[in-house]
Structures are given as C-alpha cells and as structure tokens.
Design a protein around this nucleic acid. Structure first.
Lengths: 247, 247
DNA sequence: CATGGCGTTTGACTTACATCAAGGCCACCC
DNA sequence: GGGTGGCCTTGATGTAAGTCAAACGCCATG
C-alpha cells in the first residue's frame, strides 16, 4: 500500500517541485538551460526528501538510485576505511549535487549525513542520463558539475598534502565564506554547522589543533570565533596566510 | 602552412588509430561499446600524440581542446599553488583518461607531464559530448570514468588526511601493483617511473621519508627496493599495515 | 533549577615527520 | 677515465601537530 499524499504542510512543497521556479537554479543542475527545455527538466525532479539533523542521505554500499541536489540545509560526506577510520571528504550546501561517487560502480562509496535539518531534490539517475542525451545544455552542465568536483578534490589534496595547520584552516574559512557569499548570505559572518572534530577530520588535523588555531586567529584579530559563530574580520590577512611564500 | 603527413614510421601508427583494435579498449573509454557502435567511436579518436619524457601534455590555464587516453607510457598530474608550491595529484598509466579537470571551466587546472616517453590518443571533447548523446553506452562509460576519478580522489584524501607515512607508502605500492596487474604486467615486480620526491609530493611526505620507509620495508622483508626497481615480497603484510586497527 | 553530557578550550608532554647535512651510487658526457 | 650532476640514502637535530588530561560552558532533559 502506498501513501499517495503526505499529510500537512508538506503537500504544498510537493506541488511546487519545479527547478524553473527554484531560486537555486543558476547554481544547480539546471544552470544554463533555456526556458523551452526547462519544462522537461522540471519533470526530472519528481520528489523531495527531508532529512533531520544526523540522518543519512545514503550510506557507502547503497545502490545508486538518484543524485541529490541540496535544496536547503547542510551536509557532510565521509569516506570510511575498513578499520573504522573515517574522513570527512566534503561539506555541502544548497545548490550542490551529491551522489556522483556512486556512478562508477552503481554503489555509493561514502556516507552522506545531514548536519542540520535539510531538504534535497531527488534526481533519478537513469532519467538524468536519458534527458541529458536529449538536451545538450543539460549534458554539459552535468559534465561541468562532475569536473568541478574533481577540481575541488585536487584542491583538497593540495591542502592536505602541502599546507600547515594555519593555512588549512584559513583556506577552509575562506572557502566557506566564498560559498555563503555566492548564495546570497554574509560571507563575513556565519555559523559553522560542523563540530571542531569534523573540521579536523576534513583538514587532516585533530580537534584540539582546530581549537587552538581558531583561538590564535582570534588573538591576532583575524576572526571572532565564539562557539560555532564565526566573524571574519580580516579576510586579506587570511588570504596572505595561505599564499605566503614558503621560506 | 600545415604538415599534412608526419614523416617516418609514425605514418603507420596514424593509419591504425582505431579503438576497436586497441588492446586497451576494455580499460579505456570504449569499454562496453558494442561492435556496431565501435566504428563510430573509432572515428572519435583521430590523432595520436607522442611525448618525450619530461614533456607537458598540457599546462594549467590551457584551454580544453581534447581529453587524452594514455596509449603507452606513464604520466603525472600536478596542481599548483600561486606561491609556487606544487603537489602531484596523480600518476597515470595506459588506458587512463586525462584532462577531465578542464571540463568545468574550459581550462586545464593542472599540469600533466610525461614521466617516460609516452603516447596518448586525442579525443576532441566536443565530438565526445556529441557522440555520447547518440551512444548511451559511451555516455555511461564517460560518466563512470569521471565518477571513478572522484572516488579515487576520495581515496587520496583518506590517505593524506588520516594515514601515517608507512601506511601511505604501503597503499601506494599496492595501488601501483594492482594497476600493473590489471594491465597484464607483473604486480610484484616493476620499475617506478617517478622519483622519491614525486612520490613524496603525492603522498604528502618529504623525499627523505620515502627513502627511509622504503629502507625499513626492505629490512623487514616486505619488499626489495633497489633504486627504481621494486619487488613486493609480502603483499599481505603491506595490506595488514594499512588496515591495522588504530590503537 | 539541578543534572548530565557533549563540544570545546587550554596546558603539559610526546612523537612522527621535517630539516639540515654529508656522503654514495649511477648515468651521462666530454 | 675522470668529472659532473641527478637521485638516493642515512644520521643528527628540530618542530609542528598529536596525545593525554583537566576543566569549562552551554544545552537539553527531567
């Protein structure tokens, strides 16, 4: 037995699933799609899914069913090692596309978890491939997004492989700042959705180191950090920190 | 003025450019393409390019013209930071597809250099997108390859973010071994094409550390390492090294 | 309003890897 | 054949970040 219609205010949301009227469309999969084609893209996304904080969107090993576009909220992806080690591979926010790790083997290769209550649009992958054969601009955008993920990963490698703790954290804060700005939020004042431990995992550092470096940044007047709230006071100084000449 | 036909033995190579008769086809872009369709894929790859050791295939900033499939040889990709820091992001061998970092912005985001004399097949990206709209199995394979790169990158992040020097090097050697095996070469005995410094850069370590850890592995009877020649004596022990429980 | 617990901060100490330095091996080239 | 330079090895020493430990602040919950 199916539940055809969810109850309550959710209904309204369901009636309105349409990329064409989504404020994120220029950040997301439909970027660059023209209005004639948009109608068909609208039909691609036929379901939204709400996640409570802490809930998994998918787990490593789960079969690929759909890609997911984040509509609201904040998520993290973690790669796991057999021995239980886990590493945060990325933090994700509105407009970003998740699940591309699963395409190669038809199984997800990481866990993705909501860090706050979130909502995602489900994009059935088979339909997406089919439609992107018919709409070149959709195909191109999909390729661009996958490529962007590869480039992002290269950046993380550079960070993990050749930066010191302060540089890593400066790069992390500036990256968050830039992404908030791109979404119309303040890039100088925001709340971290993740713990120090999660930041540390992402940056290849321990939580104590994150805490210490944040304190040092604050002492030096670069930021104000109170719990999860961050205010960036001197973005230029942070930038200098990253690209300062090695000896 | 154009040079319509290269001189010498190269000609023969030019007449024979055909994925359908390439021994690497099951590793490469045409994997899973059926014979009827293969004819069209053959026409996709219309040029080969030879590279001398040390020569660049492309540099960061260069416009995207083509993707490249390695036909023979060995290459590395490096991401660069403004301040001159550089980090090896990957080593590549026959059958692997290069250049996907350039799709997102139409410009390459890393340098790719031959570590020994090599040959690549040029795959004009525009044609590839066009043909993959017409051949679903080509489209799927392209998506799988891009996804595989993303998954590989996650693995590197895990390595850089949470493994110790010995684990990193063990993982590196086993990865090479596995890739040589997949290509029909010995997985227990091979020559490194890269220097200790390049290995170090890839693994986020200094060349002295690479040298020391290789010596330690040799003392412990896990490998025989003489200059660039490596023989793996105890792959199981290397595997145990990686997944040993953290305290 | 007390209680407990998670996340965080901070300090003291340890350690894995980096850095600095010297010397060896091998290939290449006059 | 002897020099030159790139690559590698090994030892001595330095240091950034990890580990261990204690204590605090802030919620959440009863």
């Amino acid at each position: 037995m199916k539940t055809p219609v969810p109850t309550g205010p959710v209904d309204v949301g369901h009636l309105r699933i349409a990329c064409s009227s989504c404020s994120l469309r220029e950040l997301c999969l439909p970027a660059g799609i023209d209005t004639r084609e948009m109608e068909r893209v609208d039909r691609l996304v036929n379901r939204r899914r709400k996640l409570k904080r802490g809930e998994h969107l998918y787990r490593a090993g789960a079969p690929l069913a759909a890609l997911y576009a984040i509509r609201s909220g904040f998520m993290k992806s973690c790669v796991l090692h057999d021995d239980g080690r886990e590493q945060v591979a990325g933090f994700h926010m509105m407009g970003e596309l998740l699940g591309m790790d699963a395409i190669s083997s038809s199984r997800h290769m990481c866990d993705t978890v909501a860090l706050e209550d979130s909502e995602v649009c489900e994009i059935p992958f088979g339909y997406l491939e089919q439609l992107s054969r018919e709409l070149p601009s959709l195909q191109q955008q999909l390729h661009r997004i996958m490529s962007r993920e590869i480039v992002r990963d290269y950046g993380v490698m550079l960070l993990l492989g050749s930066m010191k703790a302060e540089e890593r954290l400066a790069a992390f804060l500036l990256n968050l700042s830039q992404r908030f700005t791109a979404r119309g939020y303040s890039g100088t004042e925001f709340n971290l959705r993740m713990t120090r431990e999660e930041i540390g995992s992402y940056l290849g550092l321990k939580l104590e180191t994150i805490s210490r470096v944040l304190s040092r940044f604050q002492q030096d007047g670069l930021i104000v950090a109170r719990h999860k709230h961050i205010r960036i006071r001197d973005p230029e100084a942070l930038r200098r920190l990253i690209s300062q000449q090695r000896q």
